[in-house]
Design a protein around this nucleic acid. Structure first.
Lengths: 198, 198
DNA sequence: TGCGGTACTGACCGGTCAGTCATTATATTG
DNA sequence: CAATATAATGACTGACCGGTCAGTACCGCA
C-alpha cells in the first residue's frame, strides 16, 4: 500500500469532493442503515448509493459484490463494539459479581434496544448462506467472548467469590436471555414486551 | 363447500391424478422443504412446484401469492406440534418438576435438531416483514404457551412443591436456552456444538 | 359419445435489480 | 497548462422470477 505523502499538504479539512480513504466507510455506513431497515435481499444497492450520496456504480469500485459489501458491514459494526467490552472484562479491578452486575449488565441491557440488535437478526437470517461470515463472526466475537467470560468466572472461583458452576462450561447461558430479548423485541414488539433483568 | 359425494365410489386408493383435497397439502409440504432450505426470498415458486410434481401455475390456484403460501407453511407446521405439548401440560398428573424434567425437557431437547427448528429461524428472518404472521404466531403459540407454563408453575407453588420464583413472571427464561441452542446450531454447527441440558 | 366443468399446464409478460462500462470531472504532476 | 491518472457517474444490459392466462386433459354424467 503506497502512502499518499502529499495529500496532507492540502488545508486540513477542506470539503474535498473526492476522498479515497473515506468513501468506503461512508458507503458501509449507508449500507448498514439500509440493511438494518430492510434486510439483505430487499435492500437495493441503488438505495445504499443514494444514501451515501454517491452514484449507483461507485460501491462496486470498492466492493466487488453486494455480498461483499454486506460482509464489510457486519465486520465493521460488530467487532469494534464487542471488543470494548472484552477489553474491560480482561482488565477490570471489580469482583466478578460486581462486574457482571455492573458493566456487563448495562452493556447487555442496552443491546436489545440499540441498532446493533439488527445486526444480530441479520446474522441469523443471512448467516447460513455465508459460511465464511459466520466463521469470521464465530472466531472474532463468539469464541473470544466466551473465552474471556470463562476466565472471568474462573477468577471469581479462584478467589472464592463463589463456587464452581455449570456457567463456567456454558457461559452461553448468561447470554441466552439477552438473545431472547433481542429477538422477542424484533418479532413481537407490537404485541408484548420483555425485560432483561436478572 | 360442496362435498364430492360420488368420488368415493372409485376403488379405494387408485392413483388419482386429480385430487383437490390433497394438492394444497402436497404443495405446502414441498414449500416447507424449499423454504427451510433456502429461506423465503431465495425460494422460487417454480422449484416448489417442481418438488410437488406440479406445474408452475398450480400453487397460485390454491394460494394467491408467495407470501400467502409462506404463511400457510408456518401455520401448518408449527401450531399442530406445539398444541400436543400444551395439551399434555394441561392434563398431566406429574408434579411440576417431574413434568419439566420429563416430557418438557425431552420435547425441548429434540427441537433444535428437528426440521421444525428451521421454522423458528424463518420466523426470525422474515417475521418482521409480515406482522400478521408474527401476530398469528404470537397469539396461537407464544401467549398460549406462556399462559400454560404459568399455570403449571402456579400449581407447583400452590402444592408447596417449590417457592415463588421469578420464573412465574418470565417463563420465557425457561425457553431462552433452547432458542439459543437452535440458533447456535443453525449458525455455528460447523464450528462448535452446544448442549441443551439443565 | 359428447357435453360441461374443473384441475392442471407451461409459455409468456412485465418489472426489478445486480452488475457493467463508456464517458466525464477532478486532482496531480512536471 | 498540458498530460496523465483515477474517482465518480448513470444509462444500460441481461438474468431472473412472481404472477397471468389461454388452452388442455381428464372427470363424471346424460
Amino acid at each position: 500500500m503506497a502512502e499518499t505523502k502529499s495529500a496532507e499538504r492540502k488545508q486540513a479539512k477542506a470539503k474535498r469532493r473526492r476522498d479515497k480513504e473515506v468513501r468506503p466507510q461512508e458507503i458501509v455506513a449507508a449500507a448498514f442503515e439500509e440493511f438494518a431497515e430492510k434486510g439483505f435481499a430487499e435492500t437495493r444497492l441503488e438505495d445504499v448509493a443514494a444514501r451515501a450520496k454517491v452514484s449507483k456504480g461507485l460501491p462496486y469500485l470498492y466492493f466487488k459484490t453486494k455480498v461483499e459489501l454486506f460482509k464489510a458491514v457486519i465486520r465493521s459494526v460488530i467487532t469494534s463494539h464487542f471488543e470494548v467490552l472484552r477489553q474491560r472484562m480482561e482488565t477490570t479491578e471489580l469482583s466478578t459479581e460486581e462486574f457482571l452486575k455492573g458493566p456487563f449488565l448495562s452493556f447487555i441491557q442496552e443491546l436489545p434496544g440499540s441498532r446493533r440488535a439488527f445486526i444480530v437478526r441479520l446474522l441469523i437470517s443471512e448467516g447460513y448462506k455465508h459460511p465464511e461470515l459466520t466463521q469470521f463472526y464465530y472466531e472474532n466475537v463468539i469464541s473470544r467472548g466466551l473465552e474471556t467470560m470463562r476466565r472471568l468466572i474462573d477468577r471469581g472461583i479462584e478467589r472464592g467469590e463463589f463456587k464452581p458452576t455449570p456457567l463456567r462450561d456454558y457461559p452461553q447461558l448468561l447470554v441466552a436471555p439477552v438473545l431472547m430479548a433481542i429477538l422477542w423485541r424484533a418479532l413481537f414488539e407490537r404485541h408484548d414486551h420483555l425485560d432483561t433483568n436478572k
